[in-house]
């Protein structure tokens, strides 16, 4: 099987997983969620194989353009779902997270995104590309879990469900925050120092990842030290994920800077 067949297969499995998840939700069959998760896991396996094949054939990490980094983010979000899907006792996490995964994959495969594995410009030829991008996107995938559960929290009425959603959002931030700090800020600084000779240039992308970091630092301090919970925490987590999204997409299109690759 070729790499693009595997990508398509993964995408199809994700769509199927989404359909099964939502069918279960509307038909009020909780057990169908297991089927949704199983399909997502199969899709994850197919995409993992595709990512490996792409790495082998192009000889570099599979996240050098928007298509590659979007589909890696989708992959990382499925991984986060596998981590939290069963233990969180939040049946709605699966369907809504898969909705984002499918949307990201659809965006990645839209004709707007260049797909070919292109040769790397000199600045990107570094193993720090691996470390910086993969760990950052992994952290952001957990922020996406916090985002989904916070939105569900804001929409939920049932008190018991709310407690679980609130706890899940916090756990996801607690896993994602160290990863995002390490990948996005620390590895980014190390790489910038190697490539440009300066670890921090106040470039818009750098500053926006710092802003994202501030928002989640705020989430943790208000929660751990000041005892914020529930609605206020959920708002901060939603803002944090939106800041992460803006760092990822918005900065490239709206603000000019050094970081013009993806």
């Amino acid at each position: 099987m070729t790499e693009s067949t595997l990508f398509t297969l993964a995408f199809a499995l994700y769509v199927l997983s989404l359909v099964v998840y939502f069918a279960g939700l509307f038909a009020r069959r909780d057990r169908w969620a297991g089927g949704g998760l199983a399909l997502a896991v199969l899709g994850f396996a197919a995409q993992t194989a595709a990512l490996i094949m792409r790495t082998v054939s192009s000889g570099h990490a599979p996240f050098t353009n928007m298509f590659e980094s979007l589909s890696f983010l989708a992959w990382a979000m499925v991984l986060a779902l596998i981590v939290f899907g069963r233990t969180s006792r939040v049946p709605r996490l699966g369907p809504y997270l898969m909705l984002i995964v499918v949307a990201l994959d659809a965006l990645a495969s839209s004709p707007l995104m260049p797909k070919g594995a292109t040769p790397l410009v000199p600045a990107l030829q570094s193993y720090w590309l691996w470390l910086h991008v993969s760990v950052t996107l992994l952290g952001e995938a957990f922020f996406a879990v916090a985002f989904v559960s916070s939105l569900l929290y804001l929409a939920a009425g049932d008190e018991e469900k709310k407690v679980r959603l609130d706890a899940l959002a916090y756990r996801a931030v607690a896993v994602g925050f160290p990863l995002f700090t390490l990948g996005g800020l620390v590895f980014g600084m190390v790489w910038a120092y190697r490539a440009w000779g300066s670890y921090w240039s106040w470039d818009p992308k750098e500053v926006w990842s710092l802003i994202t970091w501030f928002v989640f630092a705020l989430y943790l301090h208000t929660r751990i030290v000041m005892g914020w919970k529930g609605k206020r925490s959920a708002f901060v987590a939603v803002i944090g994920f939106l800041a992460a999204l803006f760092t990822y997409f918005g900065v490239n299109y709206l603000l000019a800077g050094l970081h013009s690759y993806a």
Partner: peptide, 20 residues
């Protein structure tokens, strides 16, 4: 800690201005 929270918000807002 309230001071810390106010400072984090101020730093975040001024950083946003610095990118706009």
């Amino acid at each position: 800690v309230k001071l810390a929270i106010v400072l984090i918000i101020l730093l975040a807002v001024s950083s946003i201005v610095g990118t706009l």
